[in-house]
Write a protein that binds this DNA or RNA. Sequence first.
RNA 1: GCCGGUGUGGCGGAACUGGUAGACGCGCCGGACUCAAAAUCCGGUUCUGGCAACAGAGUGUGGGUUCGAUUCCCUCCACCGGCACCA
Length: 875
Amino acid sequence: MQERYDPAAIETQAQELWAAKRAFSVSEDPSKPKYYCLSMFPYPSGRLHMGHVRNYTIGDVITRFMRMQGYNVLQPMGWDAFGLPAENAAMANAVPPARWTYDNIAYMKGQLKALGFAIDWEREVATCQPEYYRWNQWLFLRMLEKGIAYKKTGVVNWDPVDQTVLANEQVIDGKGWRTGALVEKREIPMYYLRITDYAQDLLDALNDLPGWPERVRTMQANWIGRSEGVRLSFPYELEGEKRLLGVFTTRADTLLGVTFCAVAAEHPLATYAAQDNPELAAFIEECKRGTAMEAELAMMEKKGLPTGLFVTHPITGESIPVWVGNYVLMTYGEGAVMGVPAHDERDFHFAKKYGLPIRFVIAPAGTDPAQEVAEEWKSEFGEYGVCINSGRYDGLGFAQAVNAIAQDLQSKGLGEKHVQWRLRDWGISRQRYWGCPIPLIHCVACGDVPVPDEDLPVVLPEGLVPDGSGNPLAKTPSFAQCICPKCGGSAKRETDTMDTFVDSSWYFMRFASANNDQAMVDERANYWMPVDQYIGGIEHAILHLLYSRFWTRVMHDMGLISIKEPFQNLLTQGMVLNDIYSRKTGEGRIQYFNPAEVEVEFDVKGARVGARLKADNLPVEWEGMRTMSKSKNNGVDPQKLVNEYGADSVRLFMMFKAPPEDTLEWSDEGVEGAARFMRRLWRMVWEHVEVNAGPSTTQGESKDTVEFTDAQRDMRRAAHSTLVKVGDDLGRRRVFNTAIAAVMELMNTLAKFEDRSERGCRIVQETLELIVQMLAPIVPHASQALWQALGHSEALIDRAWPKVDPEALIKDVVEIVIQVNGKLRGRVNVPAEASEDAIRAAALADPNVQKWIEGKAIRKVIVVKGKLVNVVVGA
RNA sequence: GCCGGUGUGGCGGAACUGGUAGACGCGCCGGACUCAAAAUCCGGUUCUGGCAACAGAGUGUGGGUUCGAUUCCCUCCACCGGCACCA
């Protein structure tokens, strides 16, 4: 028999074979249907993590399966190479981000190759290369020309000590991560893209994406957040001048219940009122401290202070006090809201806290409007109903009231119906070094001047090392100082760079024409796009996918690409978790231990009862499972595993352990189990090959000419029905764990098939060939070696998916389950073509069933053909 | 706080369209082989009672629809992801 399963040798051999054939280099081929399979490209953080391995294995299985189905399959790979971690690494090690990034790319590329992914490396791109990011700049300038890009102020986290802008991630408990200084919100000029112009289309088109998970479409729809309502104004006078306070409401029917208005701390009215009100000024300062994070703002205690200013109710003319509220978002609507405590929960609590009046103006259907004494908020208060205490609007329902009020406001010039979006324009300016330079020049004489196309790309200098105190580009005269292209005078270059989401919003199109240095994309993009299958983490469900959909639309509208939706089918894979083990140290600190250093203890039933550190044999605490991270010391290095078990075992384990969309819990035993399966498969093939002459099978032999034994027929049925299931799981369902389980089951069946006749051997050959081909997308290296062992000289990578023999599937006896009142009481075998009556009779004749229905009245007998019989009996 | 999701044996999971709950694997228990160990192979393994046949219970909680619910509806609980400058 062949020497033991040696993954290292087999995998090198298979990878060399594919390389020699240039098996994964594809071009536009009109003779086959195209299939574009794309996994989200990685950030080159240093080494692959298990999330990457999972992501790319899923993509590779689909790629190889679709190739076997006869498609011209493209699977490219690139690097999302700009970003904050490179700057952090630069600070820590005094190495320029570029060096760090390129080193990481080189290492990680080697790891991807070792895993045997069917990637067309000739299309590789890295977003930090000028050949790539020049097209970010080029398209940005086109957007500027069309008014899609524009300048306005935006709010950022400001570290007053380091004098620098912080990312949300760099703000910890409201303090700067390096300085510990209290972070402030600060307004600075930035560039924005008008994604809101596309809001309606981005929303509507979600209905045309049946290949996307429902939950992702729902999340995007909620994020875009269309609400229909009324935009209205409260007039007021300030320093003798008539002005309007604008608010938006979805509940214009409650307008007569307004007892106050609230504005955001950043609102001009708040700023004005604070001038001679130190208490208010202090409150506004307090609101401006802390982060710009919505999650934190939303969980803060609702606080407010009166401005001392009043506005006029647009219908009643009543005087309404204006408050500053820390819960009012400057970024949504007008930065001001009308307060209706009787019918809005947040306003209710605000009014209770500050003693503002509560006026009920809606009677929800079937309730008593005597609710003025309400002490506690009830959810009915927020429901639709009929107007009361609202003068001429009394008795109107929601829609009628909104219409009437909107009309009256319109005739006064104080309001109209309005569609408000939650979605905000996309701010792309980042005050950071390691990103794509924004191609603008600021000239004292000419203003903001675009860099002329012929001067693109604006190349980012690669040798700088940031020190945490502001953007090093601003301190580099060779970059920042320049000549104004318009007047020739001396000018300053924009030193902000672009959000890295810009880089990732179109890379999938660039793969189609990666080598074109004359254009962003070309006609090849129209051949490959849209991406047929996109695979990536659920954490990208909103931002990256929405920005990509927007960017693709912009390119479509500029005539650069023919499609509007970039991703036809989306698979959002779950995260990879691992155990966390820790111990409290003397000083109340917590020390984390890698699961590889820990021995788990079980009781006689196999339940986990404790864990000890291998080094000192003393107990450690199990803290549950979390995503792999450095801080919890629960990472697993894919490279170590590939070296120890081989790429195939790692791939197999990843695909077998959980369905692709679920979280995956790491376990070392599981990888060993996968390796055990690989050895078993190897042995089964080689044991067969030793006694079998060659690759001849029973495929195509018909029962008209051949008399199979029952065992032979059962074996062939098992093999071919597994082929049906695996094809369906890999193709339609895209769940790989059940496909692998089905193959394992088939191997268990085959191990029990002991027919060593000539025909028996041919059936074993046929079954093993099917197994090897079914596993080819998942464990491609071993499959190639075993395919050869089974007597084939042709490379497995060029084989089509095997064909099912329909005759092998035919079943002539089926087992019927018998229930009495829904409880399982027996089973009976009947001919597959048995009639309903025959099945019923057989079921009622079963002795066990007789026992349960004896002496009872049969009320009903339900027969589900081929499945079960349920006998319903009375008491 | 808002939006989205998940919950099934000791563990990961299966049950696809409302029809046998626990496929497949891990762990554990027992056996074979071995001087011994590893590897491998065979058998067992939801819980409770019983030698067994079998019976009862059982898919986070409480309720509902149905001949029949892990699957559909409502309530509550727990956990996870996103919240616009992490990628």
